[in-house]
Structure formats: C-alpha cells, structure tokens
Design a protein around this nucleic acid. Structure first.
Ligand SMILES: [Mn+2]
Ligand SMILES: [Mn+2]
Ligand SMILES: [Zn+2]
Ligand SMILES: [Zn+2]
Lengths: 141, 141
DNA sequence: TTCACAAATGCAACTCATTTGCGTTTATGA
DNA sequence: TCATAAACGCAAATGAGTTGCATTTGTGAA
C-alpha cells in the first residue's frame, strides 16, 4: 500500500499522522501475514521508533479498527491490517508457516445461528484459525 | 468427573498419578469453562500445589491431549478438559462471561474444504472463538 | 503563520504470566 | 524392597507488555 494511502487511513481514524505511524501502517498493509511487534521493529530497521511506541501505536490502531489481533499460537501478539477483509489462517505446527484462507459463507452462517443465542445480544468479532502440517514438513518425515 | 476416572485418564496418558495431578484434572473435568492457572490455584485452595507445579502439570497434560489451550483473549492462558468433545466459546467483550457453543457441522465443512488446500497436507486442530456483548451488558447501556 | 494544547514519543522502571535450574521427594514397576 | 525416572517446591530468571513522566511534535484555531 502506498504511503499517501496510509496517511488517509490514519486521518480517517482520527489519528495523528506521524512518520513512525505511517511507516508501521505501511509495513502492515503490505504484509500478507500477521506480524509481531518484534518483526515490525526488525523490518523498520534503524529508523524504527522505540518498541514502546510501536506497542502504543498498535493499541490505538486496534481501537480504531485499523489492525486486528490474530490469535495464532505464539508467545507474542500478532497484528494484521484489517483492510484485507475477512479471512482466516492456517498455520503449520512444525515450521510455523502461515497461509491465508478466504473467509467462507460458512462462518457467517454460524455467526447468524449464534445471534439467535438467548444469552448474547450481538456478535462483534470471531476468529477461526486452523493448525496442520504443510506438505513440505510432511515429506520430511 | 469422579476421582477414579481422573486416575484412569492419567494412567492412560502414561502420566504419573499424584494427588496434585488428580486434583487439578478433577477440577478441570468439572469446569464447563476454560480456566486459568490462577483460577485453578484458587479453586484448589490451601491444598494447592505450587504454581510452578500446576504450570508443568498442564504442559504435560497438553502433550498428552488431556487438556487443550483455549485462545480466548486473556492475559493468562486458559485450559480446558478435552473430554467434553469439540465445541467453541462465545465471550462477552464487556464482562468476559464465557458461554459454550456446540460445534456445528459448519466448521467441519470448512475444515474439509481446507484439506483440499494445495499447501497443507493435514489439518490437526482448529479453533473458532466468538466475541460479542451479552444481553445483560447490553441492557446496562 | 503563529500559537496553544492535545497527542505522540523516548527512556527507565515496573508488572506479571510463564519458564528454568537445582536439590529433594515421591511414584512406579521390576 | 530398591533403583530410577518423574514430580515437586523454592528461588531466580525471562520476556512480553505496561506505566510514569519529561520532552517533542502534529493539529486546528486564531
Ligand atoms: Mn492474514
Ligand atoms: Mn468449553
Ligand atoms: Zn511446515
Ligand atoms: Zn457481558
């Protein structure tokens, strides 16, 4: 995604536009996979803002719905740009490779079914993550 | 679940049977909701083993598939007895109440669809967790 | 453009769930 | 009963994430 586009996203979210915030959002908007804070920092390299700043940044991006937290098994939190639309992930339990999986009507159907639940008034988010063994790792064994 | 039953589960999993391990497994097998280490310790009360022991215990239960880690958003890890069979959770983003949701054919269908993926050879696990606002919290606003 | 103020940033210190090391105790099965 | 591997407790370490505070920077209004 282009830098000006990132600025627009920030402005639309009532976010202050700074170089750091643009950089971080730009990287996230180009990554096909969810990233950890450490990965972000590494990708930013020498021009990276302080780690704490990245944490605070992501927190505010979450508030505005610009990024989403992906609950893949990992000791660190993973974040991904929400602009890609609804989709899920399949992650290899051996090599940790992540592949995107298009959202299918199926999960929407379940969501609707659950809206009929007598205890919950609304469903605001859902996550569907899969784990398996990729073909390469299968061959190795 | 009865204590002797817990012992059997441990033995079947090639686990050493100790009082502590029985106690923890017994509590988990009675809880309809996933529990954190802190909750386990509190429930065990004065007879609780050291926290570290609970951590190590759960790690080995995970290895044997006796418990599963539930990826609901929480600062602590949540564990639940696997003996209940496949199901998911819906959690209130306001009060953090958790409700069980039966597994529906839907997720199985998606699983099957993904088995046709050309990058993954198998899918071993999946998690489907929902977030929403419960009726009580909706009323409060 | 200028200016005042809210928001962002950096640094250091802190929190807190989880892990690790190690010496001791206990369960198991031969 | 005995040897051995596993579990346990305690203390210390780890490491992701948070918080306080002084400083800088972006923004919107004058
Ligand atoms: Mn993705
Ligand atoms: Mn459950
Ligand atoms: Zn793999
Ligand atoms: Zn609620």
């Amino acid at each position: 995604m282009i830098k000006t586009k990132c600025k627009d996203i920030l402005r639309n979210g009532q976010q202050v536009v700074t170089q750091s915030r643009c950089d971080v959002l730009c990287i996230l908007s180009k990554s096909q996979h969810p990233m950890s804070v450490a990965e972000l920092k590494q990708t930013l390299g020498k021009s990276s803002p302080n780690v704490v700043t990245i944490y605070r940044m992501l927190e505010s991006f979450l508030d505005k719905g610009i990024v989403r937290r992906v609950p893949l098994r990992s000791s660190e939190a993973l974040f991904e740009f929400t602009g890609f639309g609804d989709h899920h992930h399949i992650s290899c339990i051996e090599c940790h490779k992540i592949e995107e999986v298009d959202d299918c009507a199926v999960s929407g159907a379940l969501k609707n079914a659950l809206k009929k639940s007598n205890k919950f008034a609304s469903i605001t988010q859902h996550t569907f993550e899969l784990y398996g063994v990729c073909k390469e790792c299968t061959k190795k064994k």
